[in-house]
Nucleic acid binder design. Structure first.
Lengths: 345, 345
DNA sequence: CTGAAAGCGCTTACAG
DNA sequence: CTGAAAGCGCTTACAG
């Protein structure tokens, strides 16, 4: 690789000191205009690029944030990252992005490698595998600030940006109640997944407030797979008293449910109304379009970034805090019962 | 932020020189075992992390690759990045990931900022807006190696990893021919998009080889939007001689076509068989499942990375070269005509 | 086996 | 207005 131009090269060529070049390049006062111009001209001609490693080293500041997410293939994370980047750029920071592929080991490695002087703080969403938090506590002990979002652990006292999952599920369930559903089922995730459990909680609370009894047979836990969703939905359909409303904890599962309903010649929303979570692009692509709870992804990213930068710039005043953001229920065909007169599909 | 532990701290505490600490930490020969052990013990106790900025600076090597993609929200890019990361890790490199959001300006900024000493080379897929290549030529002049994939420009003599789009479209079209389609339409992208044009070329070639005439009215160009796809499909449906086969240049457009067919009570694949490109997850989620040309995303990532690292490590022997990878047609319900006996949907 | 010294590319008091 | 010097945290010949 060709030698990159340094201030030393410029200084030598112009017969001035590197200090002068450094000052001229950064428009500092007390530099003779002609000198500055000569430096700038040569810098341009030679396409000089300052070495940020050197600058960061001397300033002990990188103005860079580390972002660790499980998988950018999930629309949710890709979208949150956009929010992070927007806010970071606005405040003069760069971001280093790393995905763990839901692997604890890669989470460990990413965190460790970026914490060797490259970033001033982290925005983290934990991998599914992570159940040991020592690596995070070590970072904390070293005084490196971090902010969590979405995937969380109560083991750590750090800033967090979450979403009101209980409230969101409550709203989604109530929406079905208002749409004349009398027996509302829930397709939940695995029993140990906290987000799914929070949504279960909101669902139960809504049923209670609606004066509905709770029928355990209408609550089904399962893996996050299309196949499992189809299977669970088929099970619900075959109950002696099948549901007329369904809350599904994620869009991908909801797609499976809709497939299953079609196979069973059950109409959505006429025979059963459906609401799910995340508002991924797929919701508007399938037929019927799926009603879904939108997460404020951009805002999650911006808020997390803002919290982190505040902590970096004012460690004393900014202790760990938890922000809970509002969701928004996007109502579409799959649950719009009273407005649907004829069948389109 | 708390002061991070340095080798100086360790040296002072152990009353040895920093050189000795540095050597002990890296398991160099000629260090007294007791000295080494003392250093390692203290480093562990204090959770010492070497500052990579300093190391990179003195070694003039970062062992880091810059990856610039338009949008990680596209499944294609997210997946290629996984391939890049896998290969990079395997060869002892890190990657710095940056998305441009299809903005020329952000492409410029990312490239510039990472090229200030942070990375040793780039893997790039150009933003849609980019039509001026000066920023890339500047990098080239500075001797920074780069490899392109997917989004390309003939203006630059660099290594590229592409996919055989002509061949893929040929295969997709021929697949419809074999499935008894007699009038095959093409839903293409905007006229200036090279990938779309290559697919058009393959489509035309296949029609020719199949002995079909070319009917310009069956070829429709348009924006990459769901609405536009629906509109174009409606137009095709209303032709006096409507098509019985359809090649669509992208899955998202194909979803629009299927919506339009449903609205017109046209059965897929019975009345019209459909094939599209990219094999995004949506293909298996919609009904009917969409036949689609899969790109070897992981392999694209691995190959690009491998080319880049070779160039970094052996600039002389590794001049720019173009690799063309094979695609794979995934056949699903939307085009499986002769196997479908009854209608399911 | 260990240390002093120079240096990676830059910034910043301190003098003049 | 400019330069010499020290230093950011590390590595590496060179001596001993």
């Amino acid at each position: 690789m060709a030698h990159q131009v340094t201030i030393k090269d410029i200084a030598r060529h112009l017969k001035v000191s590197v200090a002068t070049v450094s000052r001229a390049l950064r428009d500092m006062p007390d530099i003779k205009p002609e000198t500055r111009q000569a430096v700038l001209d040569l810098a341009k001609e030679w396409d000089y690029q300052p070495n940020v490693l050197a600058t960061s080293l001397v300033k002990s500041r990188t103005k860079t944030l580390g972002v660790i997410v499980p998988d950018l293939g999930y629309h949710f994370f890709a979208s949150v990252v956009k929010g992070i980047e927007a806010e970071a750029i606005a405040r003069g920071y760069s971001v280093l992005l790393s995905q763990t592929g839901e692997s604890y080991e890669r989470e460990l490695i990413s965190l460790q490698s970026l914490s060797r002087g490259q970033v001033e703080g982290f925005i983290i969403s934990l991998s599914q595998e992570t159940s040991n938090y020592e690596h995070l506590k070590r970072l904390q002990r070293r005084g490196i600030p971090m902010v969590f979002f979405d995937r969380d652990t109560p083991d750590l006292d750090v800033s967090k940006v979450m979403v009101d999952n209980v409230g969101a599920a409550y709203e989604a369930t109530m929406h079905l109640v208002k749409n004349q559903c009398k027996r509302i089922a829930l397709l939940a995730g695995p029993k140990n997944v906290s987000v799914s459990n929070l949504r279960l909680e909101g669902y139960l609370k809504a049923l209670q407030d609606a004066g509905f009894g709770i029928d355990e047979s209408l609550i089904i836990h399962g893996e996050y797979s299309l196949e499992k969703a189809i299977e669970s939905t088929n099970h619900l359909v075959r109950l002696s008293e099948p549901p007329d409303g369904l809350v599904v904890v994620s869009d991908r599962l909801a797609v499976g449910s809709i497939k299953a309903f079609k196979q069973n010649n059950i109409r959505v929303p006429e025979d059963i109304a459906l609401v799910s979570f995340n508002d991924e692009p797929i919701c508007t692509l399938v037929t019927p379009a799926i009603s879904s709870v939108a997460q404020p992804t951009l805002d999650i990213g911006r808020t997390a970034t803002s919290l982190l930068i505040d902590q970096i710039e004012n460690p004393k005043e900014n202790t760990s805090q938890v922000k809970v953001l509002k969701t928004e229920l996007m109502i579409r065909e799959s649950s719009r019962r009273n407005l649907v007169s004829g069948k389109i599909d």
